[in-house]
Design a protein around this nucleic acid. Structure first.
Length: 129
RNA sequence: GGAGUUGGACAGACGAUCGCGGUUGGGGGCGCUAACGCGGCCCCAACUGAGGAAAGUCCGGGCACCACAGGGCAGGUCGCCGGGUAAAGGCCCGGUGGGAGCGAUCCCGAGGAGAGUGCCACAGAAAUGAAGACCGCCAGGAUGGCAACCCUAUCCUGGUAAGGGUGCAACGGUGGUGUAAGAGACCACCGGCAGGAUCGGAAGGUCCUGGCCAGGUAAACCCCGACCGGUGCAAGACAGGAAACACACAAAGACGGCCCGUCUGUUUCCGCCACGUCGCUAGAGCCUUACGGGCAACCGGAGGCCCAGACAGAUGAUCGUCCAGAACAGAACCCGGCUUAUGGACAACUCCGCCC
RNA sequence: GCCCUCGUAGUUCAGUAGGAUAGAACGUCUCACUCCUAAGGAGAAUGUCGGUGGUUCGAGUCCGCCCGAGGGCA
């Protein structure tokens, strides 16, 4: 589990990230959606996870996928990719159906590769007010 | 050793590193306040943190609101007897009756067809009304073989439900007496029905007597008996203020299909409102028992315990050891059941084979 | 979490009150017509009625239990 201050808890922000967030990464297991910051601030980037019933019809399977993703985010993303994720106020991981076939190691590799390869967009470093 | 039946329990354990929900305690700094204090944030420690099915949402309740849910109709549900439980008409226990199995044991939706209505296709003479004669059997008559009798063929009239055929099903079954041929017409046994006696708390069992009158379907309508108001925690509460009109009736509303009855003044504007707090977990609670009652389900007594309460929603990742790289699977207001999914062990019992 | 609805040919639907072989339209295939194709014409095939037990002589229909799809609820 990731600490409380990194969680995407506000429902409005969650919906906004899902509907108007930009795709900042895409693999065969999941899609990354990022909502850019409107103001420069030091508040931490918050993470949300979407695992629909289409991924797995059983609650146990969905829980396992979500817990793995959160563990990877906690250990491999928040501090190692701090500069990479800073421009976004919220990031949502959208799980795809194939994620149930992936092991923990494969998921970790996919997520770190995805963040390392993609480059930050121009202009997001100095957002418009 | 093999095949099988039933029952209860368990749901990997321990250790290490990183990490999370809740409660309690301590600390840090921030905001509001004149102050007392209040609010949320971060850090540390201790304790605690999913299931036997948490599932399907199939029954029964608690709880909340609608009137502390009242009467009738409609509608729905259940159906051998007795007991258990908060309740159950669907659950559990014991019994009765029926069925399956060599057996341990298992299954049953088991009120009424003797209140009424409907249906029983095709086939068949006839499908419910003591109805019905297709083939057959028997008697009588007519005609022919043949002049006549016997015999026989065809036709007509009548008797006959024993035999054939049809069908899931044809109005008790088997054997005998009887008869022109036959028939519960009569007799014996069996089955069913009615009455009586007796046993049992009851369903029902056993015995005696009578007479032969009774097709199936009620998971078809229905009858009898019993029960059920509706909506569901997205229930609901915190949660209101002002103005105008009216004060009887009426209208409208009170979340059910209809009627009755009961209750409530109405309208507009502002505020609140999908994101706060409560409801939200100590309860028909769990564990133990060489205690008492009961065949049992269960009840009572005694002792001990507090055992998740989230709100984008907490249990994961990696490694080591053990007999192991187990299955189904995740609380969302809470309980009691049922059903379905599923792992490896254990115990008791039954049948068969072999050995002592 | 709670409450509902629906599963029938390849597709969209009928089939109320049980009766034998389950229908219609579109689509598919075949044959003629044409130099060839389309349209029009003639004909044919197509179903474990979502699955599984039960009631009944007999189930798409009636009754359980599962599976799948869809919808609604401050």
């Amino acid at each position: 589990m990731i600490p409380r201050r990194f969680r995407l808890k506000r429902s409005v922000l969650f919906k906004k990230a899902c509907t108007s967030g930009k795709v900042i990464g895409h693999t065969r297991y999941f899609t990354l959606l990022g909502l850019p910051r409107l103001y420069q601030s030091d508040t931490p980037t918050r993470f949300g996870f979407v695992i629909s019933k289409k991924v797995c019809n059983r609650a146990v399977g969905r829980n396992k996928v979500r817990r793995r993703l959160r563990e990877i985010v906690r250990l491999e993303v928040i501090y190692p990719f701090a500069e990479r994720i800073k421009p976004y106020i919220a990031i949502v991981l959208l799980a795809r159906r194939t994620i149930t076939e992936a092991s923990y190691q494969e998921l970790r590799q996919a997520l770190t590769d995805c963040l390392a390869k993609s480059k930050p967009e121009q202009g997001t470093e100095s957002p418009t007010p």
